[in-house]
Design a protein around this nucleic acid. Structure first.
Lengths: 339, 339
DNA sequence: ACTTGGCACTCGATCTGCGGGAGTGCCAGC
DNA sequence: GCTGGCACTCCCGCAGATCGAGTGCCAAGT
C-alpha cells in the first residue's frame, strides 16, 4: 500500500513544495529527483497518494501539494532532524553567551530562534511552579507596607507589596524572614502551601494578623504566577508567509498576543524532552489551520522547566527547523544550569 | 496666503481622507462639509494648497491627499486633542487596575494602548537612571558566589550574580549590605558611582577584593541598564494598514524589533511631558516614511521617567490617538505613583 | 503486471482592449 | 471673486482571448 517508491515520491513532493512554494507536477519531480521512472509512472503514484489523502490538488490540473496528513507522514517517517552547521552552532553560542540575567536569556533566545528559523519564535519563561525557593526577603517600605521579594533557583525574582493591618516591628520582620526562609528554602514551590499553613501559629496572637497577611500574599504570588509568561519574537516573519495564510495573518497575529493561546500552542505535550511537531489542524484553533508548531521542553539539567518553539506555515522546512529548535533548547538549558 | 477658508478646506481634506482612506475630491468635500461654496471654488483653493505643498495628487485627475506638511499643519493648528469617551476612560481603569508589579503594568499598558488606538503600541520601561535605590540585598549562593538584588523606587528589580575571589563570610556580607544601603538608599542612580567609589576603603585590606568585585558588578548593572527595555504590542494592527505601507510592512516590523530603533522613535524630545507627534519623514529611517509616531513621557508624580506612544500610518486619527496616548500616560503615571 | 509515450482536456494566470466614472483645469459669465 | 460648463486625463473593472502547466486515460511496449 505504501511501498518505498510512493514514500520517495511523497518525500520529493514535500521537499520540492517547501523549496519552491509552488504545487509540484510530475514532470518537475522526475527532473529534480533521480527517481528512475517516467512522469507517467509518477502520475500513477501521485494518484494513489492523493487517494489515500497524503497530497491534494489546489484545483484541477494543477500540481500537488502535501496535506496535513502528508506532512505528518513526512516528519514521522521520512525526515530526520537536520543537525546545524558549525556556523549556526557558533551563532548560537555567540548570541547566548553574555546574557546577564534570566530576562536577558529569554529575550536573546527568542530573537535567536526567530533569526535562525526565520519564523515566529515562542519562549516560555522558566516556570515558578517547577522551581525552588532560593531566598525570601522582606522589606519595610513604611512600618505597615511590606515588600516581599521572592528569588527562585532558576533566577526568577518576584515582588509584591502588602499593606498590613498596623505597623510591623523590625524584630518581627526579622523573625518572620528567618522562619520563612528556614521553612521554604529549597523545597519546590508546589509544596509551599502546606509548609506555610501552620507558620502563623508560631507567633504570639497579636502578631498573627500581619504575618497572615504576608503569608497570604506570598501564597497568592506563587499561585498567580502559575499562569506563565511567554516571550514572542519574529512576528515580522509571519508576514513573509502571507501567501501561505490567505487572509489569516491578522487573526494569527491577534491570537499570538494572547498568552493563553500561546500556552496551548506550546502544548502540555507528553514527554517534554521530546521534540513535538503539531501540524495544521492538529493545533487548536481555526486560525492555525495552516500553521505548524515545533516545540520542545528545556531546562537546567535533566528536568524540563519550560518550553520553547517556533510557529510557521505547514509548508516549512521541518528537518531544519527541528534541528534549530532542539539545538537552541539544549544550549539554553546548559546556560540555565550554569547560572 | 493661508486664509481661514484654505485652512478649513485642509482640515476637511484631512478628516475625510482619514475616514475614507480615499483621495478626496472637490465635490465630495462640499457635500460632506457645509463649506457654503461651490466645488469650483474649492478646486481653486485646493490648487493653491497643492502649490504650497500641503496636499498632493497621487496621480493626475484623482482627488487630493494630505502631505506630511499638510498633516503637520493639521496637528499644529487645526486639531485639538480629543478627550476620551467615558466608556474609554472606564476601559483604561478596568484594564490597568489590578496590575501586580511593574512588569505587569507595562504589559497591560502596551496592550491597552494597542487596543484603544488600534495601532502599534510602544512602552518604555521606567528608566533606572532616573529612579532611586530603595534597597540592595546581598545573598550568598555559595560562599564565593554572591547574588546582588537591586530594588528601585519605581518597582524595578535587577539581579546579578558575582563570582568573588575566595569565600565571603556572612559577617562581611552583612556589613557590606548595611553600608551599601546606608550609602545609596534614596539617592538617584546617576549619582551612585561617586558615592560608591570610596566604599571599599572602609574595609580591611584582605576584604577589599570581594567588596570591589561586588561593587564593580553593581555599578555595571546600573550602567548597562541605562540602555532601556521597551515593550511592543499590537503589531497585528500594522498589517491592517498594509495598503498604507506598500511593501513596507516587513521592513517596519523588522525595524520595530530593534530596541535602538524604538528608542529613537520615542525620541529624546524636548519637553517630555508634552505630547510629541512625528509625522512621516520626520521620523528617522526610510522605512517610517509613511508612519507617524505619537508619544509622551509618563512618570510617577511630576517627573517623567520614561516614554510611551503609538505608531501608525501618517493617515491616522490624530486627535483621537493623541487623546488616548495622553490619557493612558496620565493614568499609568498615577498608578506608578501609588505603588 | 508494470511502465511508458501520446493525446485530449481542464483550468488558472496573464494580457489586451474597452467603456465608465471620478476628478481636474480652465474659461467665460455673473 | 464665485460659479457653472466643458473637454480632458487617467484609474479601475470587466470580458474575452491566449498560453501553458499539469492531469487522466489509453494503448502499446517490455
Amino acid at each position: 500500500m505504501l511501498d518505498d517508491r510512493k514514500l520517495a515520491v511523497l518525500r520529493a513532493i514535500v521537499e520540492d513544495y517547501v523549496a519552491t512554494e509552488e504545487p509540484v507536477g510530475s514532470k518537475a519531480l522526475v527532473e529534480r529527483h533521480a527517481l528512475g521512472v517516467s512522469p507517467a509512472t509518477i502520475r500513477n503514484e501521485m494518484a494513489a497518494l492523493e487517494e489515500e489523502g497524503f497530497i491534494a490538488q489546489p484545483h484541477t490540473s494543477a500540481g500537488r501539494i502535501p496535506t496535513d496528513k502528508g506532512y505528518r507522514l513526512f516528519v514521522d517517517r521520512l525526515s530526520g532532524v537536520k543537525p546545524l552547521t558549525p556556523a549556526e552552532q557558533r551563532a548560537i553560542h555567540r548570541f547566548l553567551d553574555g546574557s546577564v540575567d534570566l530576562d536577558d536569556v529569554v529575550d536573546r533566545t527568542v530573537r535567536l530562534l526567530a533569526q535562525l528559523t526565520r519564523q515566529v519564535a515562542v519562549v516560555q519563561y522558566p516556570s515558578l511552579s517547577r522551581s525552588k525557593v532560593r531566598h525570601i526577603e522582606l522589606l519595610a517600605l513604611t512600618p505597615s507596607r511590606i515588600m516581599i521579594v521572592l528569588i527562585t533557583t532558576n533566577g526568577r525574582v518576584e515582588q509584591r507589596v502588602v499593606d498590613c493591618p498596623g505597623p510591623v516591628s523590625e524584630v518581627l520582620l526579622g523573625d518572620l524572614r528567618s522562619r520563612l526562609n528556614a521553612t521554604v528554602t529549597g523545597i519546590g514551590l508546589a509544596e509551599t502551601p502546606e509548609a506555610l499553613a501552620e507558620l502563623s501559629l508560631a507567633f504570639v496572637p497579636e502578631d498573627r494578623p500581619p504575618v497572615a497577611a504576608i503569608v497570604t500574599t506570598l501564597l497568592e504570588t506563587l499561585a498567580e504566577r502559575r499562569d506563565e509568561r511567554i516571550a514572542l519574537g519574529g512576528t515580522a516573519n509571519l508576514t513573509r508567509f502571507s501567501s501561505d495564510f490567505p487572509g489569516m495573518v491578522v487573526p494569527v497575529l491577534e491570537a499570538l498576543e494572547e498568552q493563553v493561546v500561546l500556552l496551548r500552542l506550546l502544548g502540555e505535550a507528553s514527554d517534554p524532552t521530546e521534540l513535538t511537531v503539531r501540524i495544521g489542524r492538529e493545533n487548536q484553533g481555526e486560525e492555525f489551520a495552516a500553521a505548524s508548531v515545533v516545540s520542545v521542553g528545556y531546562g537546567d539539567g535533566d528536568t524540563a522547566v519550560a518550553k520553547l518553539g517556533v510557529l510557521g506555515p505547514t509548508r516549512m522546512d521541518y528537518p531544519g527547523t527541528m534541528g534549530a529548535v532542539r539545538a537552541v533548547a539544549r544550549y539554553v538549558g546548559r546556560i540555565l544550569a550554569e547560572a
